[in-house]
Computed example of a mutant assay.
Amino acid sequence: MRFHTRKWVKPEDLNPNGTLFGGRLLEWIDEECALYSIVQLENPKTVTKYMSEIDFKSSAHQGDIIEIGIEVVKFGTASLTLNCEVRNKMTREKIITVDKIVMVGLDEEGKPKAHGKTQIEFVKDRLSN
């Protein structure tokens, strides 16, 4: 799994218990998956279609640094299926896993748009062509 993004847990990210608010973490995951999928599918009109059950393993506290990892599971006709793991960089504990996140590229009318992709492309490979 590649860990693409790090986030610093700040006071505004905490719940009343003083730990990372789960909703904030899900927002970060959704944003990271969207950005990753937009780049992979080369379609800025890419949206979250589905997110499977989430499993919180531990938490994070103010000042901790977390890392968000994403892995491509499958390329569909108009979609990209990912899984995600978030870990605490400071404690090395796994915070959450999401087994299945489906992102879909849309056309101008908001309908699924076939992308023709079958494998991960890295920016360095696109630039060398």
Rank of each mutant, 00 (worst) to 15 (best):
K7W: 13
G23C: 07
D55N: 14
E27N: 15
V104I: 13
L25F: 04
A78K: 04
R126T: 04
G116K: 04
K10E: 15
N17T: 03
N88D: 07
H61R: 09
F3R: 07
T46I: 04
S128I: 12
S52A: 11
K49V: 14
L106W: 03
V123H: 12
F3M: 12
D125W: 02
L35T: 09
G22I: 08
K100A: 02
V98Q: 02
K10L: 15
K113I: 01
I101V: 14
E67P: 00
T48S: 07
C84Y: 02
K94I: 15
T118M: 11
D55R: 14
I66T: 03
K113N: 09
L35R: 13
F3A: 14
M51S: 02
I66A: 07
E71M: 07
N17K: 07
V47C: 06
D107C: 01
F75H: 13
M103I: 08
L106P: 01
I120G: 02
I95Q: 06
E32L: 03
L35S: 03
L35I: 14
P16D: 07
L82M: 10
D99H: 09
F21T: 02
Y36G: 05
G18Y: 09
V73H: 06
K111I: 04
P11V: 01
T5S: 10
I120S: 05
R87F: 13
K45P: 00
E53M: 10
T46K: 03
K49L: 15
C84V: 15
P44A: 09
E31V: 11
G105V: 02
R24A: 04
Y50H: 11
Y50I: 04
F3G: 09
S52D: 15
H4A: 10
V73E: 15
K117Q: 11
L26G: 08
C33Y: 01
T97C: 03
K113V: 04
L26T: 05
